[in-house]
């Protein structure tokens, strides 16, 4: 059912110009340098599901989140939200209608709330921007309801952000994101700045809200255990590309891509039973990514074709994997 798809990302490219100023380039005779943060990404999310992107820092997962939220002008590709192509709409009322339905929760509970605003005003800002309240009393009531919904009390609305702990601030962020009654929430590492016991509370709140309000999540995290807990579908990212898309239980039961296997092998794990052989090497610089499959310098299965030719996503069972070795049956 194509109308079931809430977000469809096709061939998304997001390049940043990181070159030195023109004059220095002329003196040093260097050319323009492009950081390919996201380099040809395809995925889609069905309504009511949680799709997660996981990867190490610098793999471009946060860039995808911000691009989908409309915070960047994308270099190439299409982001289609509920049938509307984000990069092609010019009509202001249409843009507003979409941004009302797509909201975002940010990583830092400190930088995502304006320190000079009262919590009530922070939560009410989207309500005011989209004219969703009949009058002041209605707005007040809506904010009170939202505060209760995220486990705070209406009197908390009169305080300033600095009076709250990290976990409470993240609740405020969620209340604000919900205030324009969105259907789709982009969550960029919403719990990675929190302590584990608080993280559990926030993850539970997000699960409950999803059940109550039928929300769809695009969830970004580097923490595989959190991803496993919250997701329905998981995309593993490496250097601006997705190397594997798979339903949640499959990733951990039956990881396919060599990078996914590496990630799973290196996460510190509470059981302490597995003795890991840490893999050497680090993520290469995305300004000069390796040719062909970007993972080939660290991959134990790489051959000449991997160095030359970029693998595309191919369906294997329920999953999609971009790997020559798997395609050729070498793994």
């Amino acid at each position: 059912m194509p109308d079931d798809i809430i977000l469809d990302v096709k061939g998304l490219k997001m390049y940043f110009d990181v070159s030195a100023p023109l004059i220095s380039r002329m003196i040093r005779r260097t050319s323009k340098q492009m950081l390919k943060a996201v380099d040809g990404l395809n995925f889609s999310i069905r309504r009511g599901e949680t799709f997660s992107l996981v990867g190490e820092s610098g793999c471009g997962k946060s860039t995808v989140a911000r691009a989908v939220a409309g915070l960047y002008t994308i270099t190439d590709g299409d982001i289609v939200v509920e049938g509307e192509n984000l990069s092609k709409i010019r009509d202001k009322t249409k843009i507003a209608a979409i941004s009302k339905r797509v909201q975002m929760i940010f990583q830092s509970p400190y930088a995502s709330l304006d320190p000079r605003w009262r919590v009530r005003d922070i939560i009410a800002e989207p309500i005011r921007a989209f004219h969703l309240a009949k009058d002041k009393a209605d707005e007040r009531q809506q904010v009170d309801t939202l505060l209760r919904q995220v486990g705070l009390s209406p009197s908390d609305g009169e305080k300033y952000p600095h009076e709250f702990s990290g976990g409470q601030r993240q609740r405020i962020s969620i209340a604000r994101a919900l205030s324009s009654r969105p259907e789709f929430l982009i969550c960029d590492e919403p719990t990675s700045a929190l302590d584990v016991s608080v993280q559990a509370q926030i993850l539970n709140l997000m699960t409950e809200l999803q059940d109550d309000l039928g929300l769809t999540y695009l969830f970004i995290s580097h923490d595989l255990a959190v991803i496993d807990h919250i997701s329905d579908w998981i995309g593993v990212m490496y250097l601006g590309r997705i190397c594997e898309i798979t339903p949640q239980p499959e990733l951990f039961k039956n990881p396919l891509h060599p990078y996914t296997r590496l990630l799973l092998a290196t996460i510190p794990d509470l059981s302490g039973e597995t003795t890991h052989v840490p893999l050497e090497g680090e993520v290469p610089n995305p300004i000069n990514p390796p040719t062909g499959c970007t993972f080939h310098p660290r991959c134990p299965y790489a051959n000449e074709r991997c160095k030359r030719e970029r693998p595309e996503l191919r369906r294997i069972g329920p999953s999609e994997v971009a790997c020559h070795a798997i395609e050729e049956g070498r793994i």
């Binding site: 939220a69 507003a96 975002m104 930088a111 995502s112 921007a129």
Partner: peptide, 26 residues
Amino acid sequence: RKDYIAAAKLIQTPTALVLLRHIFPN
């Protein structure tokens, strides 16, 4: 660069208002 500015842009706040209501007081 802080996320509360991104949050304000997300709801299509005009740039002049972002400057006046968020940047200026801070």
